[in-house]
Amino acid sequence: MQNVIEIDNLRKSFSVKIKGRKTIVEAVRGISFSVRSGEIFGFLGPNGAGKTTTLRMLTTLLPVDSGKAMICGYDLVRHAKEIRRHIGYVSQLGGADMEATGRENLLLQGRLYGMSRVDTEKRADELLDAFQLVEVADRIVRTYSGGQKRRLEIAMGMIHRPKVLFLDEPTIGLDPQNRANLWGQIRQLQKEGMTVFLTTHYLDEADILCDGVAIIDSGKIIVEGTPSELKKRISNDVIQIRLSRDKMQRARNLFEAISFINEIVVEGENIYLFVKDGAQVLPPIFELLNNNGLQMQSVTMTRPSLDDVFLKYTGRSLRDTKEWIA
């Protein structure tokens, strides 16, 4: 398969004023990755990691500081105009006209991409149907529910049959039902041959939906691969033990001496142990803690998720990073 996106050492920094002093913030610090044609690619990371900045560079909205990016075979710096013809982009804000109907939004969008009136009308009907918007098509967007508006905006983003569709946090703010529906619709796009590039901070979303994943943190790609590859790279099982904070350091010292624990990550009141066979090592771990008078509050053992991948590489849990919920 061919690569539709190839990024090499892309950088972007901003100059911001912090307490009256000019400071350079490096939002994206030399990232490289590629996306194959026809895949759903997840760009994963907490808020402020550089996801949206990267996306805005790739969609020609933000000039690149340095580095190279090829999108659909065009150079991002030199051929922004050609790239705009071949991509679709749905921002977090969406950006549908609130005072126009869904159908009007679709029709205008198609015409702006140079489609004929007849072609646009046909395509709009097709999309309204695919995204289950036929009933609300002639209502003003202001009256739409969150899920309806999001579906309309994704339909708008692909009215001109782009080769790559960029979605910035497509399921943010949607309830589980709507999220699951949207996943189905995104998979449908893939079946029609479209490449989908989406950012998300929901690990389960990337896990379920994406063929390829890159995890970004503080402007750097920390790991890249298919979800199953990434999970294989960490140990088979993750044991999460909850202890009070004052006991944490002692527990850590104890565990560090044990050979079957491959990796230890402490975060707040949780200690995570990456092990090969969780069921086998649980009894000796219990015993060890009991013998040393360390009372556990709870224990959970899980198959590794992408959250554990993130945890392993950053030392932080994405699940528990509070600021990204906002």
């Binding site: 020609t60 909205l61 705009r84 921002s91 702006l112 708008m156």
Partner: peptide, 14 residues
């Protein structure tokens, strides 16, 4: 600009 309409137009080739 606040609700993302301008950005949507600026991504298009118009």
């Amino acid at each position: 600009r606040t609700i993302g309409v301008i950005e949507r137009f600026r991504v298009s080739p118009v």
